[in-house]
Computed example of a mutant assay.
Amino acid sequence: MKNVTLAEIFLHPITQKYLQRSGIAHAVKVTEHAFHLAFKYNVDLDLATKAALLHDIGHYEWYRNGKWDYELYRENDIHAIKGAERAHKLLIRLGEEPQRAKQISVAILLHTDSYLPEAQIKRSPLQKVVKLADEMDEEKGGNHHYNVMDIETAFQRLQRLDKLIETYHPLPAYKENLR
């Protein structure tokens, strides 16, 4: 199995299609946050950044009368479920090791509570890192999905992260619990 990079994932047509929908700037910023949080909490950098990059690829566009409707989205959204499925299929297609693809997909599934019935979920450190990274970039009314970053800038920032991951990876996974 080859090591699939963030840059390879980003350039794939499936990723491009869905990141255009959920926001490239948000995806890249969450990926950067996840790198720093994973480094801080000694979570696998590669897993955390891949899950962060793909965490919103399950978004569906909720429109009412031709206009984005955030409340309709909040009421009906299950993007984490769809995103976990899309991410798993994409990662396997790109050659990611199946168990790592599964860990990434489960982290995507649990990155938000928006679709879950009220219950306490015990997240792994990887899953916590992805959830926290997403929350660090959130803006009221879902506005974080509308921040703009051009594809070239996003690609360069992800290549930079790939180099950092290559330098520091592998870290012992899940050594320290998040509080």
Rank of each mutant, 00 (worst) to 15 (best):
H144Q: 11
T153N: 10
Q16Y: 01
P172Q: 15
K122C: 08
V148N: 13
Y73N: 02
K163P: 04
H12E: 10
H55T: 03
V43E: 04
K131L: 10
Y60H: 12
H169T: 15
I108F: 07
K29W: 12
E176L: 06
L164S: 08
D162L: 03
R100N: 10
L53R: 01
K82A: 06
N143H: 11
Q99M: 15
Y73E: 05
Y41T: 03
Y63D: 15
V28E: 11
Y41K: 06
Y63Q: 14
I9T: 09
G142Y: 07
A154K: 04
M1F: 08
A80S: 13
E138P: 02
T31P: 01
F35E: 02
D77K: 06
E138R: 09
D113T: 10
L47C: 06
L54R: 03
L6S: 02
G95M: 07
M136T: 04
H169A: 13
K89F: 08
G58R: 02
Q156F: 14
D162M: 01
K2S: 10
H55N: 09
L72D: 14
T5H: 02
L161W: 02
E8N: 07
E32C: 04
E97Q: 13
G142A: 04
D56F: 09
I165Q: 05
L110G: 00
H12K: 02
V130E: 02
R64Q: 10
T15S: 15
Y146T: 14
Q159A: 08
H111N: 07
H12L: 04
K102A: 13
N3F: 12
K128L: 11
Y168V: 09
A52L: 04
L11H: 13
F35V: 01
I81N: 11
D113P: 06
L91I: 05
V130N: 03
L6C: 00
H55D: 07
D137V: 15
E71M: 08
A84V: 03
I24T: 13
Q20R: 14
I108V: 08
Y73Q: 03
N65I: 05
E138K: 14
R123D: 01
N65H: 11
S114G: 09
D77T: 15
L19T: 11
R86L: 08
R21H: 08
A119R: 15
K89C: 11
I104P: 00
L171G: 09
E75P: 01
Q20W: 04
I24P: 00
G66I: 12
A51V: 05
I14H: 07
D44H: 06
T112N: 08
L132D: 09
L90K: 04
D46Y: 14
I151R: 13
E75A: 11
L161S: 03
L161I: 07
V106T: 14
N76G: 06
K131R: 15
N177D: 12
G142L: 07
H59P: 00
A87C: 03
I108G: 05
D46L: 10
P172Y: 05
E85A: 10
I9L: 06
Y174M: 12
Q99D: 10
L164P: 05
K163L: 11
Y73L: 05
G58M: 06
H145L: 04
K140S: 07
V43C: 08
